[in-house]
Design a protein around this nucleic acid. Structure first.
Lengths: 160, 160
DNA sequence: TTCAAAGTGGATAAAATTTATCCACGAATG
DNA sequence: CATTCGTGGATAAATTTTATCCACTTTGAA
């Protein structure tokens, strides 16, 4: 049981947005190029972050993505819930009903099990909520990604 | 992010073993038949439970599987750790290193993030450890699975 | 001692999920 | 009013999960 890779990607994206100077929106193509994924895929990730209120998007010529709130107000729980879609770790199938059918008398309390897993999961989420990205990432500088990417392209030319 | 189906299967198997009267070992073929999976697959699940000390196995003519300890001493954490092999939910790739390479100065504290996830995960495990299968399953009877399966086969014949 | 019934383990196939892409459409701003 | 960006559906590629087959070993009762 592991997180989707989207969780890590999202954290990287949020870090990129936080590093960007002057609240200047980042174009999706710039981010997707930096992450090495297709632009349309990147946009799907961004969409989830927008829907969950972590990122704001501006259409139009000077548009792009910006942080919707400071990193200090974005918790690990926000990120995980933004990316991970499954409601709960525990998934209940009809297996117990099939196995413990007659002539046994009823299924051994499967509801309790599900509840117990959910209790533990709540503890997990509560902990994740304690950590915000500001304290974890400790970003202490600003950059202009547009410039960085341009320089990157230039040195590629020089090498090739 | 969901549990493997093996977690649910394992709980059902443990319930079957706990229901079995007189500590009489359950043959693997009986369990696999009841679960509706191949015998060799069932044995792989059993193997994990044996290795993790939840179940004991006896070879030989009168052999089979039994609980290694009472349900009250088996926690949800035991089951999850027996089945789920991944060490941690968070998986770290080389993505941050690729994205935040020069001309930025270093990667924004990814170690902190991993640690934070692990802290939360510890809280999760601690909670799971609070629940034992005795209190959750509330099994208050004993059966003989051999007999149950035989009757099942008889009534199938009657129906078909 | 031998044979059948049981567990173990490797190679591999089937199914499901995750990851990702392509492309068409809609919305906003200069 | 065209350009640049965001949205979303269909779908393909890759990976992981789930499961099977089969060969082998161990055990224990006859």
């Amino acid at each position: 049981m592991r997180f989707k890779s989207g969780v890590e990607q999202a954290i990287c994206i949020l870090a990129m947005l936080a590093l960007q100077a002057n609240e200047k929106p980042l174009r999706s193509s710039l981010i997707s190029e930096r992450l090495g994924v297709s632009d349309s895929y990147l946009k799907k990730i961004m969409r989830q972050l927008v829907v969950h209120g972590l990122v704001s998007s501006d259409s139009g010529r000077e548009g792009g993505f910006r942080l919707a709130k400071p990193l200090s107000q974005i918790t690990l729980l926000d990120v995980v819930e933004g990316i991970e879609t499954d409601e709960h770790f525990a998934n209940v199938t009809r297996l117990p009903a099939r196995i413990f059918t007659d002539p046994d008398r009823g299924i051994p309390r499967q509801a309790n099990i599900v509840d117990a897993f959910n209790v533990a999961e709540s503890a997990y989420r509560a902990q994740l909520q304690q950590f915000n990205l500001h304290q974890l990432l400790m970003i202490d500088r600003q950059v202009d990604w547009e410039t960085i990417m341009m320089n990157g392209r230039k040195s590629e030319h020089a090498n090739g």
